[in-house]
C-alpha cells in the first residue's frame, strides 16, 4: 500500500545553525538514504520554511485569492513529506517511528488509482 507521510515539527528561526542541528540533519539524510535504497520510501522532499509559503484559495464561484503564509497557522509546521510503499499501516508506523528527530508525523493512505 502507498501512504503519504507529512512530517511536521517546530520550525527553526531563519538562518539558525548549530552543531546539534547539522548532526540532526545528517541523521535525517542517512535515514532517507536507507529507506530509499530499500524501496520503502519512493519519493519525498524537505520543504522550504513556512515563510516561503503562499496560499491560494478558490471558492465555489471560481474566485481566487492569493495570500502570504501557510493555510494553517500552528506551532508545528509541515516541513517535508515522503511517499511510502509498504505492506500495511503497521509497517508504515514502524518505519516513521524510526524518524531520527523529534517530529509529528501524519500517515495518510493514498487513494488508489485502479
Amino acid at each position: 500500500m502507498k501512504y503519504m507521510v507529512l512530517i511536521a515539527g517546530p520550525e527553526d528561526p531563519p538562518g539558525s545553525t548549530s552543531p546539534e542541528r547539522s548532526a540532526a540533519y545528517d541523521r535525517i539524510l542517512r535515514w532517507w538514504e536507507e529507506q530509499s535504497s530499500s524501496g520503502k520510501v519512493i519519493e519525498g522532499y524537505e520543504l522550504q520554511p513556512s515563510l516561503t509559503a503562499t496560499t491560494v484559495r478558490r471558492d465555489e464561484a471560481g474566485n481566487v485569492t492569493v495570500t502570504d503564509g501557510p493555510f494553517v497557522e500552528a506551532k508545528e509546521m509541515v516541513g517535508g513529506y515522503a511517499i511510502l510503499d509498504v505492506a500495511d499501516l503497521d509497517e508504515a508506523i514502524a518505519l516513521v517511528s524510526d524518524w531520527p528527530s523529534s517530529a509529528t508525523l501524519e500517515i495518510r493512505p493514498l487513494v488508489r488509482q485502479d
Partner: peptide, 14 residues
C-alpha cells in the same frame, strides 16, 4: 480497510 490496518497478532517487538 482504507488505511490498511493489518489483520494479525503483533510481532514480539510491538
Amino acid at each position: 480497510h482504507d488505511a490498511g490496518i493489518p489483520y494479525r497478532v503483533p510481532e514480539a517487538a510491538e
